[in-house]
Design a protein around this nucleic acid. Sequence first.
DNA 1: TTGATAAATGTAAACGTTTACATTACAAAT
DNA 2: ATTTGTAATGTAAACGTTTACATTTATCAA
Lengths: 335, 335
Amino acid sequence: MSNLKAVAEHSKVSIATVSRVINNDPKVSRETVLKVQASIAALEFKPNRVAQRLRSSNSKTKLLGLIIPDIQNPFFVDVVRGVEDYAYQNNFAVMIGNFGQDEKKEKLYLDIFQSENIDGLIVAPIHGKDKGIENLVKKNIPVVCIDRGLTEIDVDVVKVDNELGAFNAIDHLLNMGHKRIAFISGNFKIPTYIERMSGYKKALEKHGVAFDESLVFARNTDYKSGFEIAQKILELEERPTAIFSGNNLLTLGALEAIHAENIKIPEEISIIGFDDMPWSISLNPPLTAVRQPGFDMGRKAAEMLYERIANPGKKKENVILKTELMLRKSTTRIE
Amino acid sequence: MSNLKAVAEHSKVSIATVSRVINNDPKVSRETVLKVQASIAALEFKPNRVAQRLRSSNSKTKLLGLIIPDIQNPFFVDVVRGVEDYAYQNNFAVMIGNFGQDEKKEKLYLDIFQSENIDGLIVAPIHGKDKGIENLVKKNIPVVCIDRGLTEIDVDVVKVDNELGAFNAIDHLLNMGHKRIAFISGNFKIPTYIERMSGYKKALEKHGVAFDESLVFARNTDYKSGFEIAQKILELEERPTAIFSGNNLLTLGALEAIHAENIKIPEEISIIGFDDMPWSISLNPPLTAVRQPGFDMGRKAAEMLYERIANPGKKKENVILKTELMLRKSTTRIE
DNA sequence: TTGATAAATGTAAACGTTTACATTACAAAT
DNA sequence: ATTTGTAATGTAAACGTTTACATTTATCAA
């Protein structure tokens, strides 16, 4: 690869001048700008971003870190797309780390990204007391948390009103006459699920239905967990009339378990899933789901990160986006 | 962040010695190793990967580029997971670029990744004559192509036998008595679709069914295209009895169009999708699909890249993985 | 003509590493 | 006592930029 020096020699100026040209420094004459640009084109010179990043701490070389819990979860894919969309428009490159709910892996990515001198980080913390992320914030590295916040420290957050989202879903079921509603949750270490649980309880309260702990199941957030938990639910002596499933992978697993038992949805059991997906409408039957605006969350987070990089001292923000209950065919009224 | 110098001062050795310690250079005494390691721990020193990368060209700082056409396509998500899995085990970091079938964006990522001094690149070329990628290969930057190869130049490739995959699907439909089989394809600039088309034709040939160009539709590879093309297909005066859909997003779009018209699958129309997905089994009805081993492709590509980095001169490889036809409920026999 | 001021360009240090080469210390061989 | 060899460590240049500061050149007022 050609470098500044080569360009400088080619156009018979100093490397400083070339550097100024590529950085649009106004104090270089029109004439030399053209000359240098010609050389740059001739030699197909591209500035080395590694050297740029090493030299200048002030985010000349735009690089952004994005750490997500599970790239198999289409919700996070939407988030990635949102971040990437904004980044691309603003000439940032994005480095993605996927930690699959493995705390060690999350830590590793935190370290690597730091060592890569990223300008800022967007991350979905594995839990609310994530020390690794706290440290970054304390070091004044720009951080925006997504989907989940941090409890011990003030930080920018973009999330969804999980409590209200869950509340609305359960409220809908209760309105349709359901009383025994099972909840397939993710691990309660994850703040999101704590909030959804809280929405679940509040809705029951509102309708004067007693909370029954034996209807709540929390394991991992993957397909298999959904499948296994649903199997257990279906075996219960007094079978629930409805299931509220905590994320899209759990829902898929649950659906498979239900279909495997040849149980009819919604006649024999109703189901609402958290997370709406492109295929929800093509499922059997079309799934009633709580829609999270993943793309918007990603975009908003990137935007906020951008602002924080530009202005590190500014007050921390807490953005809460709305969910939407998408009514389809997987729920029905019972008496 | 603390640096080599700080550690050197703390442990009263030269920075060269510290560098040797972090690189496990055998020619440093047991004693000093311990002393330096203590300082490293005390100061929480992490080597700056940017500086490492700048200084040493020989891939000390393991960084890998991965460029994919569409992160919304779960097939590519599987590929990403495969690559990441291998990378993580071998202490590589992965930088991901998603170009959304936009050639400009692909070019930009190619440039950026190069400027980032990546050690190697895994990429799904936008078409077979991709000059940008050709250039990288010519510059001896380790490159592995995935899903699609390059026609003009010898390069490592990991792909799937698209022709055979499509052949088997169409053969299955023909065996069940279908004669008018529509093909919802992606753009024929993309080699994958050329190959699938070829399999489609060969199957027709085998069964002595005349090829009817008006049954082939090629547009983009997204949800919307699938929906719109399916609408057109359903409006055809003589409606096809089966649809072969070129990728999972197209399939989803097509399904929605079919459901919107209240047309029964498979009684009124059969459908097979290329790409099997976790939710295929929960679709209405469970979808017969051609399964591509995305995760394995990703892992294999990463592995090959690793080998090429270690041994740049080695002969280029061409790995072709098998597809599998997952028989479910979206196809039926007709007379 | 001179001196002052501004504009354009150049010089060289710095960013945090790696590494070729030089130096030191010490044991073993002469 | 001198040489030789080896192991451990240090010195300084290099990677490709940016940028504070210095220098040159041009412009213009006096």
